[in-house]
Design a protein around this nucleic acid. Structure first.
Lengths: 129, 129
DNA sequence: CCGGATCCCACTAGATACTG
DNA sequence: CAGTATCTAGTGGGATCCGG
């Protein structure tokens, strides 16, 4: 765990890294971009085909599923395999990188879940005041 | 670490929890909402005043700083203290909850930073192909 | 010094229809 | 089966001005 001071922010500034071009943030964006985490959780259970994912995430549109999968694939987190059978089938699975990513995302989600009572209490207090 | 299967997704479905109302996601949104993480990192160095934060994050607008701070305050992650001096001054700092949140966010950021070479390589390969 | 209020544009994502 | 294309309403965030 790094020491947390303004030092790192200073470093970023010095190297022209801003919130818009920071590659780390682009990865972190997968965390809260609405669908990626859910997709990764399903894929954590093993490889899935496109329509299986579609059925597993009832509210997602084909468009968003495609887009999210492409982003994850581009970052090497998800692997896409095409079998040119008839009809064609495509399999999505976690790469090794993705298997290292998922637990850390879930760890954060678990903290959020554990802390939820305190957070909801804080919100309640804030909204009253 | 929980077992990762579709079970949890099923649980969510069964309880009517979807990506739009899921409270956990609302917390995770702080992670990638562009500014909150940077704000937390600066506050990790100790309490800061509004304009100090403004100077520490060169590209942020007053509007976004205010908004981000309000969100974090509402969730009990950041504490806001007003001293009615002349001119008025406001101090922002991490709550106990925020101090528990920050390391986990940084842990994820560190993974992203460590994995960045592999991710960039994956992107490069993807963009060529 | 620390914001709130307003205007406005750019991007996002849902719906729908179509394809190899 | 596994997507793409197009259209459109809704939203987020910058710029700017105002106030306690």
């Amino acid at each position: 765990m790094p020491v947390v001071t303004e030092t790192r922010v200073d470093f970023w500034q010095a190297h022209g890294i801003n919130p818009d071009n920071c590659p780390v943030r682009q990865v972190l964006d997968h965390v809260s971009a609405k669908w990626p985490v859910l997709i990764l959780m399903v894929l954590g259970g093993g490889p899935r085909r496109f329509n299986e994912l579609l059925r597993a995430l009832p509210d997602i549109s084909k468009r968003m599923l495609t887009q999210s999968l492409r982003n994850l694939e581009r970052d090497g987190i998800v692997r896409r395999e095409v079998f040119d059978t008839k009809p064609p089938s495509v399999s999505y699975s976690l790469t090794e990188l993705g298997q290292g990513f998922l637990p850390r995302v879930l760890a954060l989600a678990d903290w959020a879940e554990t802390s939820m009572p305190r957070i909801l209490a804080a919100r309640d207090a804030y909204d009253r005041g």
